[in-house]
Design a protein around this nucleic acid. Structure first.
Lengths: 73, 73
DNA sequence: AGGTCTATTTTTAGTTA
DNA sequence: CTAACTAAAAATAGACC
């Protein structure tokens, strides 16, 4: 990444800012994949800074996806 | 993106190759966020080309995350 | 079908406000 | 803390193999 190459490993000094940015970017990616290819996709992230998990596209959507998993996995 | 700016919308002519690449990239992003910030994260994608959903990091991991959702959402 | 290459877009770490 | 800016890294559409 910019300014210095961040090694891809557990970064102890990962900042909240970095987490926020990446999470935002991740959800955007999910949105892009879903929209671009018209596929069902969902993502759930448990940030260390928030008690509630971040869910995309919505808790309902995740539940829908999950119900399918129950039958397939 | 490269060669031409792909409009962010439902692309009827979205190719399987594009889907495969983006899915791969998405999972990588999830991995990066999870590893970099040490957070629990999962992603599920239902590709139109495969009957089984693609799950990250694992069905078990998703279940773990899901159990928490039940209580929070 | 999947891997590689390249040009270009997108993402993003750190800074600054 | 949130947001904008910047420059460098990463992702990626299409071509080619």
């Amino acid at each position: 990444m910019p300014w210095k190459k961040v090694k891809l490993a557990f970064i102890a000094n990962a900042r909240k800012t970095t987490y926020n940015k990446r999470q935002k970017g991740l959800f955007k990616k999910v949105y892009e994949l879903s929209t671009l290819c018209g596929v069902e996709a969902c993502a759930i992230v448990y940030g260390p800074y928030e008690p509630q998990p971040k869910i995309w596209p919505s808790p309902q959507g995740v539940q829908t996806v999950l119900s399918k998993i129950q039958n397939n996995v």
